[in-house]
Each structure stands twice: as C-alpha cells, then as structure tokens.
C-alpha cells in the first residue's frame, strides 16, 4: 500500500553468511578500527574535526537504520531527536556546569523517553502516514525551540554556545583530537550494543515485525511494545549523536536542526544500505563529503551535481554500500577457491 509497508515486506532479509565470511567481516572491521585509531595522529585538526562529524552522523544514521532497517518503521523526524539531544547537552553544560561526558547518558535517557512516547501515537500509523507524522515533528522542532517561554533556556533564535572540553589528565593532545577519540569510544560502544541488540531476542522481534506484523503477533511478539521500543532506542541513539554534535560544533541553534538534516540522514541510510549497520558510516561519509564535492565541481549547479551523483549511486547500487560489500565478499570467496 505505501512506502514503509513495502519496506516491511521488501526489506532485504539478512543473508546467512558462511563462517569464513564472518571472519572476513571481522577482519575488515578491525582494519577499519585500526585506521580510525591511527590516522588522527598524522592529520590536521580540520580533518580530525571532519572525521568526528563523520562518526557523529554515522551514529545518527545507525539509529535510523535500527528503526527502519530493523523494525520497518519509516521516520523523517530524526532531526527532532538529534535536536533534543543537542539541546539537553548544551543546557546541562552551560547552565548547570555538568561535565560533558555525563550529559551524554542524560540525553540518551531524555531522547529515549521522548521517542518512546512519540512512538505510542505513531503505532496507529504506518507508511506515508507515519512519514507525515514524523515529518511534522521535524518541522515543528525548530519552531518549538524558538518559543518565548523556552527562550530563557534555549537562547531562542541565537542558540547557545558550548565550550569545547580539554583533554583530561593533562594528555598531550588538542581539543579536537581528544573529542575525536572520545566520540570514537562512544560510537564504538553504541555500535557493539546495536549489533548485539539486533542479534538478540528483541532484535529478532523487530525484524519479525518488519517482515510480517500479523505473523509476528501470532508468534507472541508484543507488536506495540517492540514498535515503540524501536522508536525509543533509535531516538536515544540519535540523541547521543546530537549531544556529541553539539560538543563538536560548539554551538546549538534551532535552524541547524531542520528537516534538511532529517532528509540527509535518510539519504545516508539509503546510500549505506538499509538494515546494514556498517553501511551507516559509508552513508554518513556520502552526506558529509558529496555536497562539498558537488560545490567544488560547480558552484551554481551544486544541487544538480549532488542530485546526479545521488542518481548515479542508486542506479549502480540500488541496495547501497551493502551491495558492494556483498560483491566484495563473493569476489574474495572466489579468489580463495582458485
């Protein structure tokens, strides 16, 4: 009938991978992790900053991936959760002098509650209707942050400036580098959590709901509970990304969290491959670097160049980076056989 319902039925099932391929995957992950750990020691601060943003957007895309790829619910409202996370951290740090690291679990909890509560009425909606509801949330959020009676806390249109934390224990590294490693640790922890979540009983319940709601409920899955839970978890993770983003950018303002952000995150998910968690970071790279590249190719036509590049990607690999990964895996498998 509609967009997300088709997702529910058509979302590519996670393929069973042979044991050897698993080790290939693990090997690649470890290699990527090593690169992520070592590279910042040799590059400029600006590149480190961009890598931090890559991790943060990757985390936000990952959160959407759990919601859409995992439980089959479509959301255009991720920017709202991101904004709530960012503002929670900013307000706690600036008005209550809370340590930045402590604000992160707080935003996770606040956003989880927010997402869980939002998921309740959203239960009645699916497909385009859910898309519209989440879209409404995304358009409302910047306006809500500008409201007069919140202005005392949010700083209204002007936003809030956030102080960047120094490296602790007198470690000899710049603020950017420290923040990078801090984000990397948080992202890694959440990544491992998410992978395990999707492999757990709850994760299987999400996927059962995605593939067939009626069948899932007849097997005893509490559909309402797991659907709202998926919203909560996704919002919580997005909130953490928002917090890290606020600390990294050192600034929060209502107009940084418009629907454009939600659309970018959505594009990131599609480019990375729906339902494939490592793809989230590939998608994040796409939404951070490709617009810049497009601007570099042609200033006046940057939007058109971006659109053409996006078309090129979805023509070549309609299933996103995941498709490339699967092709790579098969290639390696064939090479090994020879």
């Amino acid at each position: 009938m509609s967009a997300a319902e088709d997702v529910v039925t058509e979302a590519p099932a996670v393929e069973a991978v042979p044991k050897r391929a698993m080790t290939l995957g693990t090997g690649t992950s470890l290699l990527v992790l090593a690169v992520l750990l070592i590279v910042p020691m040799f590059v400029k601060n600006f590149i480190i900053f961009q890598m931090t943003m890559l991790l943060i957007y990757g985390l936000a895309v990952l959160a959407l991936n759990i919601l859409t790829g995992g439980s089959g619910q479509f959301s255009l409202g991720q920017s709202a959760f991101y904004a709530v996370g960012a503002y929670t951290s900013a307000v706690l740090m600036e008005y209550f002098n809370v340590n930045y690291a402590l604000t992160i679990p707080v935003s996770a909890a606040v956003c989880f509650a927010f997402g869980y509560l939002f998921g309740k009425p959203a239960l009645r909606l699916s497909g385009v209707y859910l898309a519209l509801a989440t879209f409404a949330l995304a358009t409302a959020m910047p306006q809500l942050l500008k409201l007069n009676f919140l202005e005392h806390w949010t700083g209204g249109v002007q936003g809030l400036v956030v102080t960047k934390p120094d490296a602790p224990f007198g470690l000899p590294m710049s603020q950017d580098t420290w923040l990078y490693y801090f984000s990397l640790a948080v992202v890694l922890a959440i990544y491992i959590f998410s992978v395990n979540l999707l492999r757990s009983r709850s994760g299987r319940a999400f996927m059962a709901i995605r593939d067939n709601e009626i069948a899932a409920s007849s097997m005893g899955v509490n559909v309402a509970l797991y659907k709202t839970l998926a919203f909560g978890v996704s919002a919580g993770i997005t909130g953490v990304a928002g917090s890290l983003g606020a600390i990294a950018v050192q600034f929060v303002a209502p107009d940084s969290y418009t629907i454009t952000l939600a659309i970018s995150l959505f594009l990131g998910m599609v480019v990375g491959g729906v339902g494939w968690l490592p793809g989230s970071f590939v998608g994040a790279a796409f939404i951070i670097f490709v617009p810049n590249m497009a601007e570099g190719i042609s200033k006046g036509l940057s939007g058109a160049v971006f659109g053409v590049l996006l078309f090129a990607v979805i023509y070549l690999v309609p299933h996103g980076a995941r498709q490339i990964a699967i092709m790579g895996q098969q290639l390696v498998g064939r090479l090994r056989k020879n």
Binding site: D6, A11, F266, V305, F306, F311, P318
Partner: peptide
C-alpha cells in the same frame, strides 16, 4: 529497486530541478 531507493531518487530529482531553475 527498493521503495526507499525510489524516495532517494525523488530527493535527487528535487535537488536537480531546484538548482537548475536557480541557474
């Protein structure tokens, strides 16, 4: 292609038309 890929296609078309009209 999957539905969400189609949606991404619409967004790409949006960007292309908007930017060309601007130019």
């Amino acid at each position: 292609a999957p539905v969400l890929t189609n949606v991404a296609g619409f967004i790409a078309l949006f960007a292309i038309i908007n930017s060309s009209a601007g130019l």
